[in-house]
């Protein structure tokens, strides 16, 4: 890649000085080494240091830089800037209160994550050595434990937009199933009780937006389906 100029349209809002949000048109010349969208907005920030966004690892593992990119949620650090149609439109993740520019208030998202008792429960006395688990049992956790809590999924889910306080949302439900699926965890029935509610689990209408946007290629819908199956099976 060589030097090139890219056009942006970016959602801007600083409560300290703006009455209301606006879209800023701005362009920036990228260096040859700027490949990802995160490189590009970091370059942009050199030009205008008032642009605020979260970022840390720049390699898709910390979950900081989720944003709405040309209408679709994703991580800036894993998005090739040259693959995007210009002007590149950037907005904060939908459905959560905006603190400033591309920084959203994630309280509601984490509240839902915390609501599923996101830790292993095993009340037997801890053995001297590791608890055993077969490779097959461990494989059940693949596709679940890798979640980086970026919120791309939950903030693209219409059910979460309408009921962020009641519906756990795809990320939280994926985490719930991560513990249900773990052979070392003993609280499956409490975990199911915790979700037995018209909203917490059953607001998912299998719209699949979550699967479509997950930057780690995880599948919350499948995990939700498995929890629903378990609920049904225990009802009979």
């Amino acid at each position: 890649m060589t030097k090139r100029t890219v056009q942006f349209k970016i959602y801007r809002y600083d409560p300290d000085k703006d009455d209301k949000p606006y879209m800023q048109d701005i362009s920036v010349e990228l260096e040859a080494s700027d490949k990802k969208l995160l490189d590009a907005i970091t370059r942009l920030k050199v030009k205008d240091d008032t642009l605020s966004f979260r970022r840390s690892c720049r390699e898709g593992v910390c979950g900081s830089d989720a944003m709405n990119i040309n209408g679709k949620n994703g991580l800036a650090c894993l998005t090739d800037v040259d693959s995007l149609q210009q002007p590149i439109t950037l907005r904060p993740l939908p459905g959560l209160p905006v603190i400033r520019d591309l920084v959203v208030d994630m309280t509601q998202f984490f509240k839902q994550y915390h609501s599923i008792t996101p830790y292993l429960i095993n009340n037997e006395p801890a053995p001297e050595r590791e608890r055993l688990q077969t490779p097959e049992e461990r494989e059940e956790l693949n596709g679940l434990y890798e979640c980086i809590l970026c919120a791309c999924c939950s903030t693209s889910c219409p059910s979460f937009w309408w009921n962020p306080d009641k519906f756990v949302g795809p990320a939280g439900l994926l985490a719930a199933y991560r513990f249900i699926a773990d052979t070392r965890d003993q609280a499956t029935s409490e975990r199911l009780d915790n979700l037995e509610d018209p909203y917490r689990l059953f607001r998912c209408h299998t719209i699949m937006n979550c699967v479509d946007v997950c930057p780690k290629s995880l599948n919350p819908t499948r995990a939700i389906g498995k929890i629903k199956d378990m609920m049904l099976r225990r009802a009979i």
Partner: peptide
Amino acid sequence: VVELEHYGMPFDRTDDGKI
């Protein structure tokens, strides 16, 4: 490391179920 396993760390496993 064993403590961490007890906390729920999803270590990969050997055929006999160990870390």
